[in-house]
């Protein structure tokens, strides 16, 4: 049977999904990128291969998304390399065709996607600042000595969430330390933090937008029930969290790979192939473009980063 692989390589986590021709998820994995997208994808593929070992699936097409989509696209010989906004929109509208609003909070970015009649009509993504994203929550969890996985459960226990400044993580952090030192309980602070994340999100990304239900909340942070509840309190509607919400980007790009009808050779053997990247500053003008070269078994397969033809590194 034909299978389609979607990989979403984010800054914090790497997600992989294999779907069959009826768009059922037959294998999936979620793991940390740890600053090494190529290594993470190799680990990911090993796990997926194992999950597929007793099924008769041949992967005919690969799609990549996320911030390392281009690099991994070259590595896996992908048919589709798509930005994460479109990938998420496609993934969610496939599973929830009636969705009107998508909230998404990931490790380093957060976005909102507005959908009308199945088409994206508006979106926004955080720009200069990573306030209120997953990495902020996990660093604060660490500071409070709780693991980020139990964060949400603890938040639900609170009756009076502490007020924490939402504008900026630096302010939020000093607020948090201060409130802890004057005696606010841990539950209240954690609940306050969840609320601050939501307030920040709605004020920045969601500014000027209308949140029409049904609302789907996804991305790594959607697994945090405390943030989900804070969203429901703030918006006044039910917020749906799909059990595969954290995989939606990978699922979306797998669907795109299937719809593209482009079939390319793919084999799990690339796990054992050596991939290497080198970067250098092009010396040909004062612009100093940062050029990246990708090598497969010491053979150059692609390069990018040059703004003009002078800096082009030719692939033979």
């Amino acid at each position: 049977m034909k299978g389609y692989l979607g990989i979403d390589i984010g800054s914090i986590s790497t997600k992989g999904v294999v779907i069959d021709e009826d768009l059922n998820i037959i294998a999936s994995e979620y793991l940390w990128t740890e600053g090494d997208p190529m290594g993470a994808v190799k680990r990911l593929l090993k796990v997926l291969e194992k999950q597929l070992s007793n099924k008769d699936i041949k992967i005919v097409s690969v799609g990549t998304t996320g911030s390392a989509r281009k690099l991994i696209g070259v590595m896996t010989n992908a048919s589709v390399v798509k930005n994460e906004i479109t990938a998420h929109a496609i993934g969610t509208t496939t599973l929830h065709p009636d969705v009107n609003t998508i909230f998404e909070i990931g490790g380093q970015d957060s976005k909102i996607i507005i959908i009308e009649n199945g088409y994206v009509t508006d979106y926004a993504m955080n720009t200069l600042c990573a306030a209120g994203t997953g990495s902020f929550l996990s660093s604060q969890a660490h500071r409070l000595g709780v693991s980020v996985e139990e964060f949400g459960e603890i938040a639900l226990k609170s009756k009076h969430p502490t007020n924490i400044a939402a504008r900026c993580t630096v302010f939020a952090e000093s607020d948090l330390v201060h409130k802890a030192q004057i005696g606010h309980s841990k539950e209240d602070i954690i609940a306050g933090l969840c609320k601050a994340v939501v307030t920040n999100y709605l004020n920045n990304i969601g500014k000027g937008k209308k949140f029409n239900p049904p609302i789907v909340f996804q991305g790594g942070v959607s697994k945090n029930v405390g943030v989900k509840k804070a969203f429901e309190d703030a918006v006044g509607h039910e917020v749906i969290v799909d059990k595969n919400g954290h995989l939606m980007g990978a699922f979306g790009v797998a669907v795109l790979a299937k719809n593209s009808k482009i079939e390319k050779d793919f084999s799990f053997d690339i796990v054992d192939t050596e991939f290497r990247t080198t970067g250098f500053d092009c010396p040909k003008c004062a612009n100093h473009c940062e050029i990246v070269c990708v090598f497969k078994d010491n053979k150059l397969i692609d390069s990018w980063g040059n703004k003009c033809d002078n800096g082009a590194v030719k692939v033979n």
């Binding site: 479109t86 994206v120 979106y123 993504m125």
Partner: peptide, 14 residues
């Protein structure tokens, strides 16, 4: 580039 691509996809679909 990510934002521009998404913007393009959105306009294209509409």
């Amino acid at each position: 580039k990510t934002r521009l691509e998404a913007f393009y996809d959105m306009m294209q679909a509409k």
